[in-house]
Design a protein around this nucleic acid. Structure first.
Lengths: 192, 192
DNA sequence: ATCGATTGTCTAGCAGTGCTAGGATCGCTT
DNA sequence: AAGCGATCCTAGCACTGCTAGACAATCGAT
């Protein structure tokens, strides 16, 4: 029994190592640099080992995305809890979201930009993703306004943040105006 | 002279053929299916011919993106011109934008999602891209509100639309609520 | 302790990718 | 009509994700 346990533990450790290494490699040199060969070399195993843990590269990206979703949800909740009043909470939420996207661009890509094959917006959606959406909803529900469905409002607010995050990172928006954009967005969307 | 002219014309024709074929291939089977081999086969030339027109695949994507930007700018202006009043114009603009993204998903990807190597938000930005942004700005300036920079407002509005477009297409948002989302967005962002 | 089986891992290779060097072939100019 | 340039294609490189099959280490049972 104990032998089997150790093996399973070692396997789990190696799986975590794969995901962590994939994330590091991506953050250092971009997802294009995350090839099965390079990844295998970094973890000091051969490529086929990767396929004994994941069905393919997509699943590795998905694993990074799920870790990222959990981390983002936590970061959002921390930011919100440090703010007083609905308006301040929403502003803190928006800043924390954009900050996360900026600090972890490749993880953000794994979550929303790359094809990870993850299900969204239905019952098969993995828990971390639903929880990240919940973290947004918690703070946004109170500023949605009367008669506006909180979920719908959260979707719109989220989409706006997502647009700002992706367009900024792609060089489509001038980085120096990031702050006034956030304020304008919160100003208009959130009913204080 | 005339011979040279004909040659140049034929070259230009072939270049248009390449771009059009790339777009068709992408819209039919996705950008992953647009390989240099398949593209070359479709235009009935060998792969190296592609490289006598474009430096690489990225430039081909960029060419599709520029065509797309021109088409989008035109579509937006048509939609806006058919509406009466600032509020109706903005709603029409938003619907037209999302409609374009939904009807031409791969062209939209070429414009904003894929790495086309195109410059944005600076003086090197190609004309069609600047013009597409201008088409947005024309209708949005009148609803930005006093003391709000129209360019900044346009960036925020655009980002929101972009977020809705990409998240919807990625299956992150329920398609059936598209219309109420647009109305909510216009309702809040645009100062009628 | 030793055998056999099972589990785990690696080597080697497939088909496909973007891109390019080199030679062959075509068509224009003289 | 002949030679010369521009044009195009064949062949190939280094790389990708992924997999079959050989090999070795480890395990349980005797």
């Amino acid at each position: 029994m104990s032998v089997q346990d150790r093996k399973e533990r070692e396997r789990a450790d190696r799986e975590r190592l794969i995901v962590a290494t994939a994330r590091e490699l991506a953050e250092q040199h971009g997802w294009d640099a995350v090839t099965t060969r390079r990844l295998a070399e970094r973890i000091e195993y051969s490529q086929p080992v990767l396929y004994s843990h994941f069905r393919g590269k997509r699943e590795i990206i998905a694993a990074v995305a799920l870790e990222g979703a959990a981390a983002m949800a936590a970061a959002l909740r921390v930011a919100v809890s440090a703010a007083d009043g609905p308006r301040a909470r929403v502003t803190a939420l928006a800043r924390a979201y954009l900050d996360f996207a900026e600090r972890n661009p490749m993880v953000y890509d794994a979550m929303f930009q790359l094809d990870s094959g993850l299900a969204f917006a239905n019952e098969d959606t993995p828990e971390p993703l639903k929880d990240a959406f919940a973290a947004l909803l918690e703070s946004l529900a109170e500023v949605a306004g009367d008669g506006v469905h909180p979920g719908l409002f959260t979707e719109v607010f989220w989409a706006s943040l997502h647009g700002l995050a992706t367009l900024t990172r792609a060089g489509r928006l001038l980085p120096e105006d990031a702050e006034p954009r956030v304020e304008l967005l919160v100003d208009r969307l959130a009913l204080v």
